[in-house]
Amino acid sequence: MSLLDSFVIRALLAGLGVALAAAPLGCFVVWRRMAYFSDATAHAAILGVALALALSVNVFLGVLAVAGIMALAVSTLTSRGHAMDTLLGVAAHSALAAGLVAVSLISGVRIDPMAYLFGDILSVGRGDLALIWGGAAAILALLAWRWQALLTATVNPDLAYASGIDPRREQMVLTLALALVVAVAIKVVGALLIGAMLIIPAAAARAVGDTPERMAAFAAGIGALSVFGGLQASLSYDTPTGPSIVSAAAVLFALTAIAARLLRR
């Protein structure tokens, strides 16, 4: 009997893995105003689920591939100066709708689309856990490696060019990391709420962090607390777990915002 035999422990570890990977990436999403961008990528994940089931390949790989293609396409189009939010809105909702239609068309397997829209963290198995922590480690390593260049390009692309950094390459790093976090998080919070796990902890951490690194660290802490609180609430009150985690994050956001305002007086 090991600790991992408990579905609660597995759920907690899965949630913590996602919170840890989403925190620094979410900071970049906030700093670079890419919220719509991350939504479009996450919503495309449903299409990835459908394709993976239709082709009988691993769902993680299907989601990773489709989210990656979506992120790449949107990244390329917006860098050519197309109207950003309209285009992203079209892409995000089309991908979601097409994914849901595709899932319903798959013959044979009856799957519950709810599990992929809102996550199914309580059914996380050992294999899922390995994927989640492997993916999270890859994201953190990638961001740590490119951290200084990413920050410079985020502050100002021309400053990056003058220092010999290509901001378009750093944008690709973020695009890749985003696709990876979507693939990692779909089982935990679902396609509809991945954006929330990216943005809410980072936004809450803005009130307390005074450097980029501290903001990312606070975001990780707030994300982890949200996983604890949401999971606890979900078990106590029998509420859906993914939405409970996001609600907990929203409460923490409100608390830090109020605390920051009071302290500033």
Binding site: V30, W31, Q148, A149, L151, T152, T154, V155, L159, A160, S163, I165, A203, R206, G209, D210, T211, P212, R214, M215
Partner: peptide, 14 residues
């Protein structure tokens, strides 16, 4: 939304 002290700014990119 980006917290950045003057000292930290000088550290970019090296």
């Amino acid at each position: 939304t980006l917290p950045l002290t003057v000292r930290r700014f000088l550290d970019l990119p090296r």
